[in-house]
Computed example of a mutant assay.
Amino acid sequence: MIHGIGTDICDVRRIQATFERQGERFAHKVLSDAEFAVWQKRSARWPQRGVRFLATRFSAKEAFSKAIGLGMRMPMTWRHCEITNLPSGQPVIVLHGELKTWFEAQGLRAHVTVTDETDYAASFVVVERD
């Protein structure tokens, strides 16, 4: 049974502007430690690719927060929600801390997809109840 659906579209230029103002502090706020390591590698090779990575993660976490019905309030936090990829490339949501505990207690399961183009990143999340 579907518990919730969330979608988000993010202007990559807005993420770029925020990053230019706040620097790595913004990336640390939004990304988990594992995501931050990926972001650093991508940014080192091609800075714009790093910005798009940051935008897709921002978008996916916003969509997830909408799908679970909490928005950005506890136990939902940027860093407790991680978007990673399976070896096939499929994006998946990995939760940590209080958010993971809450999510599992609700009997929920999430599916995510992300995409980006030059100026926009978009995400769609479906959360099911077991």
Rank of each mutant, 00 (worst) to 15 (best):
F19I: 02
E20P: 00
E20R: 06
Q22N: 11
Q22P: 04
G23Q: 13
E24L: 13
E24Y: 00
E24I: 11
E24K: 05
R25Q: 14
R25C: 07
A27E: 05
A27V: 11
A27I: 08
H28I: 12
K29S: 10
K29R: 15
V30K: 03
L31E: 13
S32W: 04
S32D: 12
S32A: 15
S32C: 04
D33E: 15
F36E: 06
F36Y: 15
F36T: 09
A37I: 10
W39I: 11
W39R: 09
Q40H: 09
Q40M: 03
Q40V: 05
R42A: 06
S43L: 00
A44T: 12
R45T: 11
W46T: 14
W46R: 08
W46M: 06
Q48W: 03
R49D: 02
R49M: 00
R49T: 14
G50A: 06
V51Q: 08
V51D: 03
R52E: 15
F53R: 08
F53T: 10
L54V: 06
A55V: 11
A55F: 01
F58L: 07
S59F: 01
A60D: 00
K61T: 15
E62R: 01
E62F: 01
F64R: 03
F64S: 02
S65T: 14
S65I: 14
S65Q: 09
A67C: 08
I68Q: 07
I68Y: 09
G69N: 04
M72Y: 09
M72C: 03
R73S: 10
M74I: 14
P75G: 11
T77A: 10
T77C: 03
T77Y: 12
R79G: 11
H80F: 02
H80Q: 14
E82N: 09
N85F: 03
L86Y: 13
L86Q: 15
S88E: 14
G89W: 08
P91E: 09
P91K: 05
V92I: 15
I93Y: 00
I93Q: 01
V94F: 01
H96L: 04
G97V: 00
E98D: 13
L99A: 05
K100W: 02
K100I: 02
K100H: 06
T101Y: 09
W102V: 07
W102D: 04
W102K: 02
E104W: 04
A105G: 08
Q106C: 10
G107H: 00
G107D: 13
G107W: 03
R109F: 08
H111T: 12
H111W: 12
